[in-house]
Design a protein around this nucleic acid. Structure first.
Length: 882
RNA sequence: GCCCGGAUGGUGAAAUCGGCAGACACAGCGGACUUAAAAUCCGCAGACCUUAACCGGUCGUGGGGGUUCAAGUCCCCCUCCGGGCACCA
């Protein structure tokens, strides 16, 4: 399918066909650059005003892209949606903030540096330039005066500022732990960046676990607030809220201490030892986490994760056991890599040791199980086979006793394991017998706490956010390690303990990323290889110090960028509170669902931290969130590897930006996946051509008709205006409701079909110029959010005043839109028989009479009894006959 | 296994509150214009049966049941596709 030939009218005069010569061709290749040049020359065009504007504000935001250098169709779709909304809101009289920026730190710049020997900064800025050109070419209404580029010091210095603030509040801390390591990225990843055991950027790459000391942000401190806040986010898709709920994974339960049996080992075991976690290395007490402490009388063994400290301690004294535990560990590791942790068969080893149930004083065998996760709860459980499916499976396999402690409902004999807890009642639990499970959970936990060997607790799946990255192209973490050793346990050696870590004062910020750096394949904190960067002085004692060489996760950048838009040039603060408080929360955030638990949970956390720092008032960043569907080609997501990528530039060259954008909105509702079909873009281009041809033909009529003369309306006038106002109403409604722009555009097409059908009537003088003028003027306004170049050109041609997208959105006149006749389908026994036409507003009796008088209906009813007549006003009539 | 989506003509889809299923397009077919083609304009178009043709009829929104005067839409069961979570104690 080729585009319409981009020839001018002059050329077509060579043709002999008069009709072709009369009709001006729609030529986006001429129109779009012309308007783009005018708009680019007017930096004020899309500038959001301050709060003094006196109009209601509207913050419309699309997720900022990574500057890869190329827009893809997903971007086009995302921005076409956002731009339509922003333009609509402008026309509705809102003070609109519609900014754009660049998520400009990250690994691809380093990879490109290796490949092309181009410094990351240069490569990135060049890409930004190229993509900005593409965006301008698309005609997007961004306020470029607020552009944010996260890799520039005027932005990332505030990342550092926030980091120091968080450090001071105890929200940023260093700890050694098992972390996810991507061998491809050569760096650590946060939990959220590991998808099914693989790197979020490398689908094929299995993430390894390494023990490293890393910086963490205490997102878990806000776990409950992040969870509870989801309830109030009614403008967010339920899907995203559910994903975040799952991710936070709040679970109420209890910790209980089981003393390791002193008669076998550890004579000092003391059941009242303070509660401890698996990571601790003393081993005379095992703390288990359970959500079913009510079943504690049914516990028949203790199960430890293979990595549990107590298991390790036992292994240290027993080489055979050590080998077996090592094997279990290896199994877990393999299963994790195969992404089938749930699939491995449960088994374990008996350590030969015992732990004492503090409620019964019973000795329970201690096992190490391959199904126990070290990183959830305490890494140790009490096994209650009667009331837990996994424990049951395990107990069956090893012949461990199964002891029932929950009664079934009366009359029921459910099989074990019996896991229900609703109105079930305890048995075989001594003084707790007869209590409901829920009651028992509370009372038993309270009792354990009173006795000092347990407590009620809450655990989360959510872990603190690991933000250290062993990479160059990111925000330097603004911390130093004092070599003088003040606060350090061993003077003269680098401080690695919390006491020796020093945050840089605000005056020392930003810590600039050095430009002259050798990027190597190995990664691994290249900053450590630059002495000028590494060596510094301690801001506390003035002695020699070493800088932190890790950089921050790039998700830090995107966690608060949208606040910076409100005050992008501020060099005294990340932003002025007053400005952020005017614009926030974001009224509409639009982006892909792939960020549901990455960016979207981090930025909610960051907002809460900023609120607690007193910078802002809002609890949540965005009032409403919209997640658009993917762009598909030949049934698969567009990707280089599948070779099904359609280039936006190519589309724009062939069909124009307007047609490309409009197709992205027309081909499917925005929340669904969209199959890209080039024929469809050609169709939209044809549609615009139809409008163009019609409009240019009646330009003079439209101009003349602008003079208001009071004349009676002809019948065709009425008809056209009715359709026009119905269309206004339809589109206005689509914008405020479901955003089904596909139907909005269909409505405009339908309107054009009717207008073109009336062409003969117009030529015959049966349509008044005023009506033609109103129709044309309004039609152009309706097209503005979807095809801004086209609308601007048409607006100019028909003599519209001012800038088309600052012209008020048309208001539907209900009176004009009302049909004077209605068509009422008549059914007999639910089957359509005929459609009768009658005056709008006819009462039920009139509709019924009309229906019964219809010949076809009569024929159907002949000789039968009309049992019932259902008249639905304005909808239909159904006769029930026998 | 659990939790969300989704399944409608040859294709993308529409039907927003239970009321004419298939709007609007794409592809296709027929016609007009043209020496011809492109472009453009007009028209046809769910499937099947019946008919020379008109007329007419039956079926039809993944499958099966139900509620209702009336179901793509509500209820129950099932299949398939996409996404999320998953030995989370």
């Amino acid at each position: 399918m080729r585009a319409a030939p981009l020839q001018s009218r002059d050329m077509s005069e060579i043709e002999t066909n008069d009709q072709v010569r009369d009709q001006a061709r729609y030529n986006p290749a001429e129109i779009e650059p012309k308007w783009q040049a005018r708009w680019d020359a007017d930096p004020e065009l899309y500038t959001a005003e301050g709060h003094e504007a006196g109009r209601p504000k509207f913050y419309c935001l699309e997720m900022l892209p990574y500057p890869s250098g190329q827009l893809h169709m997903g971007h086009v779709r995302n921005y076409a949606i956002g731009d339509a909304l922003a333009r609509f809101m402008w026309m509705r009289g809102y003070n609109v903030l519609h900014p754009m920026g660049w998520d400009a730190f990250g690994l691809p710049a380093e990879n490109a540096a290796l490949k092309n020997n181009t410094p990351p900064r240069e490569w990135t800025l060049k890409n930004i330039d190229a993509m900005k050109k593409q965006m301008r070419r698309m005609g997007l209404s961004y306020d470029w005066s607020r552009e944010v580029t996260t890799c520039l010091p005027d932005y990332y210095r505030w990342n550092q500022w926030f980091f120091v603030k968080m450090f001071e509040k105890g929200l940023a801390y260093r700890k050694k732990s098992k972390v996810n390591w991507c061998p491809d990225c050569q760096t650590v990843l946060a939990n959220e960046q590991v998808i099914n055991g693989r790197c979020w950027r490398h689908e094929e790459t299995i993430v390894e676990l390494r023990d490293l000391t890393q910086w963490f942000l205490r997102i878990t401190k806000y776990a409950d607030e992040l969870l509870d806040g989801l309830e109030k986010l009614e403008g967010w898709p339920e899907k995203v809220r559910t994903m975040q709920r799952n991710w936070i994974g709040r679970s109420e339960g209890a910790l209980v201490n089981f003393a390791v049996d002193a008669s076998v080992q550890n004579a000092n075991a003391d059941p009242s030892t303070p509660l401890r976690y698996a990571q601790d290395d003393t081993c005379n007490v095992i703390t288990v986490f359970t959500t079913r402490v009510d079943t504690i009388y049914g516990a028949t063994s203790i199960q430890l994760a293979p990595e549990h400290a107590v298991a390790k301690a036992f292994a240290a004294e027993d080489p055979a056991l050590a080998l077996q535990i090592e094997a279990l560990l290896e199994e877990q590791r393999k299963a994790r890599e195969a992404d089938d942790l749930g699939g491995i068969e449960k088994h374990g080893v008996n350590t030969g040791r015992f732990a004492i149930n503090p409620f019964t004083q019973e000795r329970l065998p201690i096992w190490v199980g391959n199904y126990i996760l070290a990183d959830y709860g305490t890494g140790a459980i009490m096994s209650v086979p009667a009331h837990d499916e996994r424990d049951f499976e395990f107990a069956q396999k090893y012949g461990l006793p199964v002891r029932r402690v929950i009664a079934a409902k009366e009359g029921e004999q459910p099989e074990l394991p019996f896991t229900a807890e609703d109105d079930a009642v305890l048995i075989n639990s001594r003084e707790w017998d007869g209590l409901s499970c829920v009651e028992a959970q509370q009372k038993i936990a309270a009792f354990a706490q009173k006795q000092g060997f347990g407590e009620a607790t809450v655990t989360y799946r959510l872990k603190d956010w690991g933000v250290s990255r062993q990479r160059y192209w990111g925000t330097p973490i603004p911390m130093v390690y004092c070599l003088n050793g003040h606060d350090s346990p061993e003077p003269g050696k680098p401080c690695v303990e919390p006491g020796g870590v020093v945050a840089l004062p605000e005056s020392a910020l930003p810590v600039l990323l050095p430009e002259q750096v050798e990027i190597t394949q190995e990664g691994g904190s290249p900053l450590g290889r630059i002495p000028e960067f590494l060596n510094t002085t301690c801001p506390v004692c003035g002695g020699p110090a070493r800088r932190e060489t890790d950089t921050m996760d790039t998700f830090v950048d995107s966690s608060w960028y949208f606040y910076r838009y409100t005050d992008a040039k501020d060099d005294a603060a990340p932003f002025a509170s007053e400005k952020a408080n005017y614009w926030f929360p974001i009224d509409q955030y639009i982006g892909g669902v792939e960020h549901a638990i990455l960016h979207l949970i981090y930025s909610r956390f960051w907002t809460k931290v900023m609120r607690d720092l007193g910078l802002i008032h809002n609890d949540e960043p965005a009032e409403r969130l919209f997640t658009q569907g993917m762009v598909i080609k030949d049934g698969a997501k567009m990707s280089k590897s599948k070779g099904n990528v359609v280039s936006p530039d190519d589309m724009i060259t062939r069909y124009g930006a307007d047609a490309t954008r409009m197709y992205a909105l027309f081909a499917a509702p925005p929340d669904r996946d969209l199959e890209w079909q080039e024929e469809g873009v050609a169709g939209i281009s044809r549609f615009l051509g139809r409008v163009y041809r019609f409009a240019t033909k009646y330009v003079d009529v439209a101009r003349e008709g602008r003079e208001p003369h009071i004349v009676g309306r002809t019948e065709t006038d009425q008809k056209l205006l009715r359709k026009l106002h119905q269309t206004i109403a339809k589109i206005t409604q689509d914008f405020s409701g479901r955003w089904h722009f596909n139907t909005s555009i269909a409505a405009i097409m339908s309107l054009i079909n009717e207008i073109v059908a009336a062409e003969a009537a117009i030529d015959a003088g049966q349509v008044s110029p005023a009506a033609v003028a109103e129709v044309m003027r309004t039609l152009v306004l309706l097209l503005t959010p979807f095809a801004p170049f086209f609308a601007a050109e048409m607006w100019e041609q028909i003599g519209g005043e001012g800038v088309v997208f600052r012209t008020p959105w048309p208001v539907a006149d209900e009176e004009l839109a009302r049909e004077d006749e209605i068509e009422v389908p008549v059914q007999v026994n639910g089957k359509l028989v005929n459609v009768v036409t009658l005056a709008a507003g006819s009462d039920e009796a009139a509709i019924k009479a009309m229906a019964l008088a219809d010949e076809k209906v009569k024929a159907r009813v002949e000789g039968k009894n009309v049992v019932k007549v259902i008249v639905v006003a304005g909808k239909l009539v159904n006769l029930v006959v026998k």
